[in-house]
Simulated scan of single mutants.
Amino acid sequence: MSLVIRTAESTDVHKLLDIYAYYVTDTAVTFEYEVPSLIDFQERMQSIQAFYPYLVAEEGGRILGYAYASAFHPRAAYAWSAEVTIYLDKAARGKGVGSKLYRTLENYLKEMGILNLNACIAQTDVEDEYLTNTSQVFHEKQGYQLVGTFHQSGYKFKRWYNMIWMEKLCGNHDKEVRPVVSFQELDNKESSS
């Protein structure tokens, strides 16, 4: 069986929420305390998909993870920057699924005109059962660089964790820059070709 990266569909929401729920209840990877309801999660997904790619990795009909981009900041001058996010089924980690998901996501974002990729990551000075620095290492391997640390800014499981920002530049920052197009516009152009 081969790994397939595809656009998330509304029928995937249950499986994606199952993957995310583990990170909420058992880790400090996300600083969210409670698993969102299915409706809330679906609304988040639809909101992101209105402009950005939301991708799933699937093998043999089983979803192994998902990745998406979202607005880095709502002001117009930030249009060329996007925040990237990835979550993998815990059994799929360390098998190259995340790298393939991110490469595909990054390629779409480049086509859209995005120049800066930003990742907000939970980080710790002392690894524990809730948080290791695996995500930071993963992003470094993908070419991201640490650009900032917010010390002891997240409190979960009666412990304080850091939050770091990592960045990857994926395009030229020319004086004249083309407008960013939505993933849907990009997808429509490819469909009509």
Score class of each variant (00 low, 15 high):
residue 171 G to V: 10
residue 175 K to V: 13
residue 157 F to C: 01
residue 163 M to D: 04
residue 150 F to K: 06
residue 151 H to K: 14
residue 172 N to T: 12
residue 161 Y to K: 05
residue 165 W to L: 10
residue 181 V to F: 06
residue 175 K to R: 15
residue 163 M to F: 01
residue 185 E to L: 04
residue 177 V to R: 14
residue 173 H to Y: 11
residue 182 S to T: 13
residue 164 I to T: 11
residue 159 R to V: 06
residue 173 H to K: 14
residue 167 E to Y: 02
residue 175 K to M: 06
residue 150 F to I: 02
residue 150 F to P: 00
residue 163 M to N: 08
residue 183 F to S: 01
residue 149 T to H: 03
residue 145 Q to F: 00
residue 140 E to Q: 15
residue 181 V to A: 03
residue 164 I to C: 09
residue 173 H to N: 09
residue 159 R to Y: 08
residue 188 N to Q: 13
residue 177 V to L: 15
residue 179 P to I: 04
residue 189 K to Q: 08
residue 162 N to L: 09
residue 174 D to V: 07
residue 174 D to A: 13
residue 156 K to G: 11
residue 141 K to S: 14
residue 171 G to L: 07
residue 151 H to T: 12
residue 144 Y to T: 07
residue 167 E to N: 11
residue 179 P to K: 06
residue 151 H to D: 00
residue 170 C to E: 06
residue 142 Q to N: 13
residue 165 W to N: 03
residue 157 F to M: 07
residue 173 H to L: 14
residue 185 E to A: 05
residue 162 N to Y: 09
residue 156 K to P: 09
residue 178 R to T: 07
residue 143 G to T: 05
residue 153 S to N: 09
residue 169 L to Y: 04
residue 149 T to I: 15
residue 175 K to Y: 09
residue 186 L to Y: 01
residue 160 W to D: 01
residue 171 G to D: 09
residue 189 K to P: 00
residue 164 I to A: 10
residue 168 K to Y: 12
residue 175 K to Q: 14
residue 176 E to V: 13
residue 178 R to P: 03
residue 189 K to L: 09
residue 142 Q to F: 11
residue 171 G to N: 04
residue 150 F to Y: 12
residue 186 L to Q: 01
residue 169 L to R: 14
residue 140 E to P: 05
residue 162 N to C: 11
residue 187 D to W: 01
residue 153 S to H: 04
residue 166 M to E: 13
residue 162 N to E: 13
residue 157 F to V: 10
residue 140 E to N: 13
residue 163 M to G: 03
residue 177 V to P: 00
residue 177 V to F: 01
residue 153 S to I: 11
residue 157 F to N: 07
residue 142 Q to D: 07
residue 166 M to C: 02
residue 154 G to T: 07
residue 144 Y to C: 10
residue 140 E to H: 05
residue 161 Y to A: 05
residue 180 V to A: 02
residue 156 K to T: 11
residue 154 G to A: 15
residue 166 M to W: 04
residue 165 W to E: 09
residue 155 Y to M: 05
residue 154 G to N: 07
residue 154 G to R: 07
residue 173 H to M: 12
residue 168 K to V: 13
residue 155 Y to E: 08
residue 185 E to F: 00
residue 140 E to L: 07
residue 170 C to V: 15
residue 159 R to I: 07
residue 145 Q to A: 11
residue 150 F to E: 04
residue 167 E to V: 11
residue 160 W to C: 10
residue 153 S to K: 11
residue 173 H to Q: 10
residue 171 G to C: 05
residue 169 L to P: 01
residue 144 Y to P: 06
residue 187 D to I: 02
residue 150 F to C: 05
residue 166 M to H: 01
residue 148 G to Y: 02
residue 166 M to G: 03
residue 160 W to Q: 03
residue 168 K to T: 12
residue 174 D to G: 05
residue 162 N to M: 08
residue 173 H to C: 14
residue 140 E to A: 14
residue 161 Y to W: 13
residue 183 F to M: 03
residue 142 Q to L: 15
residue 178 R to S: 09
residue 176 E to P: 00
residue 188 N to P: 00
residue 182 S to I: 04
residue 178 R to Q: 12
residue 155 Y to C: 02
residue 142 Q to K: 08
residue 151 H to R: 11
